[in-house]
Every structure is written in structure tokens, then in C-alpha cells.
């Protein structure tokens, strides 16, 4: 494992930054663009994953394992969030028979 090549030897760090920014923006775009709640939850997952990738890239670049531990905790939070979010989705489908996010505006004001 000692001489295993690492992508960061060849690829500048800002390419990782750019990739993660693009993925994050696509996630934000999806949240704004779609009305289907399940797609919105998927786009939130996409945003979390782009942040994870950037944390890992910086962690490898600085040779500091703390960043990868943070990624691990973000994965834990994402899993919990998906479980609760999908439970809310099932309840929403059962009560109002739709997954349209615009019907959930009763808490607006």
C-alpha cells in the first residue's frame, strides 16, 4: 500500500473544489426545480455527498484524518435524515394522497 498512487499527486485541488461546487449547485437546482418530494430528498443527498467529497479531498491533501471522520458522521446524519424524511413522505401520501411539495404550505404563515 506504500507506493499506491493517489489522484491528488496529479490533479490540482481546485479541480476537486470545482467538481464539488458543480454537484452542490445541481442539488440546489433540483430542490428549486422539482415539486416531487422524493426527488427533493434525493437532491439533498446529492448536496451532502458533494460536501463529503470535498471534505475527503481536503483531508487527503492536508494528510489529516479528521476530515474523513467528519464524512463518516455526515453519512450517519444523512441516513437518519433519509429514514425520517421517507417516513414523513409515506405519511403525506397516506393523508393527502399526493407527494406534491406545494400542498404542504400550511405552515407558511
Amino acid at each position: 500500500m506504500k507506493d499506491m498512487s493517489v489522484a491528488l499527486k496529479f490533479i490540482p485541488l481546485d479541480h476537486y473544489v470545482l467538481l464539488c461546487i458543480i454537484l452542490f449547485s445541481i442539488g440546489v437546482l433540483g430542490v428549486l426545480y422539482r415539486r416531487n418530494t422524493i426527488i427533493i430528498i434525493m437532491c439533498i443527498e446529492l448536496m451532502l455527498n458533494s460536501v463529503n467529497l470535498l471534505l475527503t479531498a481536503f483531508s487527503v491533501y492536508h494528510s489529516d484524518p479528521t476530515g474523513q471522520i467528519f464524512v463518516f458522521f455526515i453519512m450517519v446524519v444523512a441516513a437518519a435524515e433519509v429514514a425520517v424524511g421517507l417516513a414523513i413522505l409515506v405519511m403525506m401520501k397516506r393523508n393527502i394522497d399526493s407527494v406534491d411539495i406545494n400542498l404542504l404550505s400550511r405552515l407558511k404563515w
Binding site: 500500500m1 506504500k2 485541488l13 481546485d14 483531508s59 491533501y61 492536508h62 494528510s63
Partner: peptide
């Protein structure tokens, strides 16, 4: 981000299970 300097000397073993 191009200007960021690595804080520690390169050690590519930090992603392995033992270190984590």
C-alpha cells in the same frame, strides 16, 4: 483554492481502516 498549501507532509495512508 489554487493557492492552498498542504499543512502536513504528504502521507497517503490516512484513508486506511487502521488510521481511521
Amino acid at each position: 483554492a489554487v493557492l492552498i498549501q498542504a499543512k502536513n507532509p504528504a502521507d497517503y495512508n490516512i484513508g486506511l481502516v487502521k488510521q481511521i
